[in-house]
Design a protein around this nucleic acid. Structure first.
Lengths: 217, 217
DNA sequence: AACTGCAATATTATATGATATTTTCGCTTT
DNA sequence: AAAGCGAAAATATCATATAATATTGCAGTT
């Protein structure tokens, strides 16, 4: 006993979203229902529910009566997403730094520590744990803004982060030491409650990542 | 011939979304599948697709294996939404004013003109056309920011606008002349390419609407 | 008599396979 | 080439079966 039974719907949602973000499902390709039915072991209706959800988040394109496609990628789209991420994440950061309490600080310290450990391993050459690194990066960025006091903002940011991540995974080349140092500086500025400086550093971090990814596309 | 056949899916989506925004479906109420099946004349599967879409946009709450509920409303949520709308719409406005071409100007003039006519009628006492007014208000706000050159931004804004609108409809009391004047000033500033001023006016417009709605909740 | 815990029952959500529409694509004809 | 036709494939919708949750009723206990 124990593991709480997930519904078929939610687990296929996770799987397909994962496969889009990590590039197993290639941009622009058609998601033929009968074909992916066998791949993901779910019925047509269940798949349609999933694909409709992913469509309204923007990972899938739903063409009326013509089926579903993995959303295309483009440099323009990436630039839009990066800019939006800057806008929302910096805004959230400033609000979070202003109102974060001790729990927030504790959580942030923990998230930064875990990310740093992971980054050391990756800089040392262990690239095997791409997915774990991704999780720690996410947890760090979330920890910074978590005290922004706006569920709506965090929800929007979460989707943008995933879209940005998809592009990073598409051309995966680890920025290594550079990104690690940026994370560290953001961490320090946030912890010392310097919201303006932290936001400046965060913006540079995202834009550096953008340029790194654009160059590799 | 002529009228393009809509799918059952897309038309129930429109209907349910409409009924949530305009308050026919009351906040927090449960959306029992069998019950709304007859109301919206669609099968369970089709409804589930629709409700999943609405859930990921935030109009519906999907509780795993416990069904679907109309999203609750709260003052806190409204404040979050208004602030986000300010953040995104002002950002989009500045970008749009900078890069809008003659088509953009033409479209904006037309949208403003139609809105103004409608507002005159409503100030004169004809409140019958709430839904038409809503459409013109939407078309005006969209026309202002449409040249921002970011589909991602426009998509996010569209959902936020609808969420904000839902609160306005919930307590519907027309702000009349005041709002009309604000629209006019935003229009003039945008047309004269004064992005900073237009953004300032837009922010005040949204915050005034927020306070008007909060006071009536 | 009121309360708690458990089992039987009813209700509801989830998932499936079958059917009805619509689109796509190759072939024929002009 | 372009338009028209029809077979094949894919999507949209539905009715129904299965699995989960909520409710009810009944014992046993306080």
């Amino acid at each position: 006993m124990g593991k709480h039974q997930n519904t078929v719907g939610s687990s296929t949602y996770e799987k397909i979203k994962h496969d889009i973000i990590f590039g197993q499902l290639v941009p622009g390709s058609k998601l033929k229902l009968e074909l992916i039915k066998s791949q993901y072991e779910a019925s047509v209706s269940t798949l349609r529910e999933t694909l409709n959800r992913l469509a309204s988040e923007g990972f899938v394109l739903a063409e009326e009566q013509r089926g579903f496609y993995v959303t295309e990628v483009s440099q323009k789209d990436l630039i839009e997403i990066a800019k939006l991420r800057v806008l929302l994440e910096c805004h959230a950061l400033k609000a979070s730094v202003e109102s974060g309490d001790d729990d927030w600080e504790g959580n942030l310290v923990a998230a930064h520590h875990k990310l740093q450990l992971m980054e050391k391993k990756m800089i040392a050459g262990d690239v095997s744990k791409k997915e774990t690194w991704k999780r720690y990066d996410w947890e760090f960025h979330l920890a910074v803004i978590e005290a922004c006091n706006s569920k709506n903002l965090l929800d929007l940011h979460s989707i943008l982060y995933d879209k940005y991540l998809r592009y990073q995974m598409l051309v995966f080349t680890f920025r290594g030491d550079e990104a690690a140092q940026e994370h560290h500086k953001i961490f320090e500025a946030a912890l010392s409650r310097n919201g303006t400086e932290a936001a400046r550093l965060l913006e540079a971090h995202i834009i550096n990542g953008l340029e790194h990814t654009l160059a590799a596309m």
